[in-house]
Computed example of a mutant assay.
Amino acid sequence: MTRLDAYLNRIGIARPSELDAAGLLAVQAAHRQAIPFENIDVRLRQAIPTESQAVFDKLVTQRRGGFCFEHNRLLSDMLAAMGMANRVLLARVTFGDPPALPPLTHCLLLVTLPDGQRMIADGGFGGTYCPPLPLADGAEATSGDGARHRLTQIGAPGTLPGEWLLERMGPPETSDGRGRDHAAWEQQYAFELADTAPADLVMGSHFASTHPSARHVNCHVASRVLPDGFVSLLERQFSRYRAGHPVERREVADVAEYRDLLAREIGVDLPVETLDRLPLWAGAD
């Protein structure tokens, strides 16, 4: 079995018959619905891989999840294997209105389809889910959870916070806790189209997984995109949102319940002994 075959089996779809926007959408949606976003290794102070084979082994062979640098490394490699040329871009996450301009701690993909159309794709933004968008000022898309997404050109190349801004308007319940208002556009992240070197991705991943100010160093997040919603474990709070259904929320009582929800709802099956080492349980009765 090739790596691409194993990946397609992991995300549960056949290889797209057309290398077009619809095919890209199908792959990215299946990726996010099958492979969870989770920062368990960050919270356990384990190294986060950015090399292709190490990421493949973790997310596909071991059936784990990961954060943006892992997800988009894998998605980039697999799209390239299908014939969709792409490269990795770096972004500044402005979701949740940080008090200062954040560093380049997120990544996404610029995909060039065989017909020449350029699109952004993102298999690893844990805060929300955005379908692929054409790289065009004012481009919009609606995701299955009912949220709208908009891409705006906001500056010249090399200016801060970036040349392009991704925004979202939708149910706050379909976010990782940072979403606020259904009826207002909220910034997600800003980016530009500059080339990146492998060392840039290593540096961004290292900061995001080790710096004392980084979000993933300070909170526990595990989530999975649903075709019509979002399910998450944020600290000890479990929530599930599906369009047209009441939001389900509850506090997780202990590590045994956390393990059950993580395996059954998110798709990450780890032993209690591993999860019990998370800072989440420090000081718990």
Rank of each mutant, 00 (worst) to 15 (best):
R3P: 03
A6V: 07
R10H: 12
I11F: 10
R15E: 12
D20N: 13
G23T: 03
L25F: 03
Q28P: 05
A30W: 00
Q33Y: 14
E38P: 00
I40R: 01
V42Y: 02
R43P: 01
R45C: 13
K58W: 07
Q62V: 00
N72K: 09
L74G: 02
D77T: 14
L79V: 05
M82K: 07
M84P: 03
N86L: 11
L90N: 11
G96Q: 03
P98D: 06
P98C: 11
L101W: 09
L108A: 01
L109Y: 03
T112L: 04
L113M: 04
M119Y: 04
G124E: 04
F125Q: 05
L135P: 05
A136C: 11
A136M: 12
E140G: 08
G144L: 05
G146R: 05
H149K: 08
H149S: 00
R150N: 08
R150C: 12
R150S: 10
T152L: 13
T152S: 15
I154Q: 03
G155I: 06
L166S: 10
R168F: 09
G170W: 06
S175N: 04
S175Y: 03
G177N: 00
R178N: 07
D181A: 10
H182R: 14
A184L: 13
E186R: 08
E186M: 14
L193E: 09
A194H: 11
S209Y: 00
V221M: 14
S223M: 13
S232Y: 04
H245A: 15
R250A: 07
E251H: 15
V255Y: 08
A263W: 01
E265G: 07
I266G: 02
V268D: 05
V268I: 13
L270Q: 01
V272P: 02
L275T: 04
L275H: 02
D285P: 15
